[in-house]
Design a protein around this nucleic acid. Sequence first.
DNA 1: TATCCGGCTGTTAGCGCTAGCATTATCATG
DNA 2: CATGATAATGCTAGCGCTAACAGCCGGATA
Lengths: 343, 343
Amino acid sequence: MTKPSSDPRHTLTLRDVSEASGVSEMTVSRVLRNRGDVSPQTREKVLEAARALGYVPNKIAGALASQRVNLVGVVIPSLSNMVFPEVMTGISEVLEGTGLQPVVGVTNYLPDREEKVIYEMLSWRPSGMIVAGLEHSDASRAMLRRAGIPIVEIMDIDGDPIDHAVGISHRRAGRQMAEAIIAAGYRRIAFLGTQMPNDHRARKRLEGFEEALAKAGLQLVDREFYSGGSALLKGREMTAVVLNRTPDVDFLYYSNDMIGAGGLLYCLDKGLDVPGRIGLAGFNGVELLDGLPRKLATMDACRLEIGRKAAEIIAGKASPGAKVELFPKLEPGDTIRPVSGQH
Amino acid sequence: MTKPSSDPRHTLTLRDVSEASGVSEMTVSRVLRNRGDVSPQTREKVLEAARALGYVPNKIAGALASQRVNLVGVVIPSLSNMVFPEVMTGISEVLEGTGLQPVVGVTNYLPDREEKVIYEMLSWRPSGMIVAGLEHSDASRAMLRRAGIPIVEIMDIDGDPIDHAVGISHRRAGRQMAEAIIAAGYRRIAFLGTQMPNDHRARKRLEGFEEALAKAGLQLVDREFYSGGSALLKGREMTAVVLNRTPDVDFLYYSNDMIGAGGLLYCLDKGLDVPGRIGLAGFNGVELLDGLPRKLATMDACRLEIGRKAAEIIAGKASPGAKVELFPKLEPGDTIRPVSGQH
DNA sequence: TATCCGGCTGTTAGCGCTAGCATTATCATG
DNA sequence: CATGATAATGCTAGCGCTAACAGCCGGATA
């Protein structure tokens, strides 16, 4: 009968380490978790044995026994649009020191997928969940509510959170941008954006935007939607379409910076006077814009801060009211002309 | 004594569902996992009860009991550079139907962090691991080797894999690009790239590049490095520096497309004749380039395909030799002039 | 009628670990 | 020297689930 330690294919357990170091499993467990009193000599012996064997603790068993899982589920719609990676950065930063670890799930803006992702995550019994947006299926909401863990919905605060919410008001952001555009004297304004029925935040921005236009007696003179493909290229194409269809348009409001950047490059290519003849604005405040020939007007979505605040709530470092509202700053860049009469 | 089901704060277990539906826990388990024979009536009853209670299975316990975990660890250096999200897409696509689920860990190009991430992941006993790159600490390699699960190292094949490797030869990619540049008649060539000691793939490309230059009796006339910040902006800045320091440079080879794009925008701003007076090339083949005023020369890194192939190996759908080499295609775009004498 | 078979359900025994004690060794105190 | 305090270690009993097998039942077979 070969001893387990002599079989390199055997999966190591605490028992192996305990046998190798001549102490009980419990003591090994204590050493490996840095919990409870263990004499320095014993500690050293155990650590030595664990290292020599190449033992990696089994968190599955540990989590089951201790009823504690150091995981935080993060459910977001996409990784490829530059906005969520930055949210993740904020989350990781804060979670770093807490022993908590983020686990990401991606929904591709599909409610069904979101439901599945949430179900999967909850089945690992995480210590908390961070979910993008306030719009979820009834089943998703019910699961999250029942889970008995802190839930933070992020990015948006225009709605009723399940537990906590950290974000900005996209409706207000749209309104603000519209007001700035109107104040700058633009009147024939078009919207260019994603054709995603489930991008609720883009939708709310547009609603706020149109609301403010209406208040000024205006309405959109054109609108164009896209889905899929290279955003920069799509921005060019849509801009071409709109400029062709509505030649006298004097402002292009994009639902995100990436297509806005494409539009800007197109306008510059065509030799249009920006921001004199035509103005442009996007949304998000992505780093990319810094490298453009001209800085696109945009609004920062407070992504890093949202990630941080959400993680703080999960980590119990902050115990705020249900909603935490952040306030994006409008950055006029070089693509909105200065307000007439005060330059 | 209140029954558990009457306490909304009680965490649900199989037992609750079993009591609610009047069958044994085992049968509930079978229904919920779709395994084994269960009569349609019983199945319906159980499903009904589970739904009514809002029961979410506990995978921790399930995994411990069955010794199977449907997780695949994916360890990558970064999420913010457009390349890994696409790899993830490939992985997810293939894993979709297999019941396996990817879990991402990010190392920020730090070997220490990589070691920690791998350790954490292995402690969840995943069914397989996909790790970017071939360079790891001894401890990391040992852990992976010991884990007794399929390991796939991706992106790079210039080296010795622990188990499997799927990727391209970055050395060869660098060489190929150099050859194309030389063939096009450029002679005063500069390199602009990341100052990351641990971006081994960028390093290998540069090595291959210089090797091919040397073979043609050439060497770099200038080089410039950066770290951090907005890549597009950095591309502009570095390009300005190089053009200023080495005015007669006639080709700029960038370590990635993003800084290459910045450089391209800068050159166009300055009214330089691209690709006549000066040529440019990047690396990766990111979508972004499609929207630029001129298409940057680049080499596709086969990201999607790498993700797919790696996932197939993990899922056991493919059982290839140790290494799977993919071959990137050089896309000359509009920033390398046509080879003299054959236009 | 005895036997077997396949469909369905239940029972038993852990998976590898940790909470919560119980136990022992060590030592200062009165 | 008994006593109690403290530090170090071990034991027991699960955590919630599933593999493996055992049992039961009705019907077909010989």
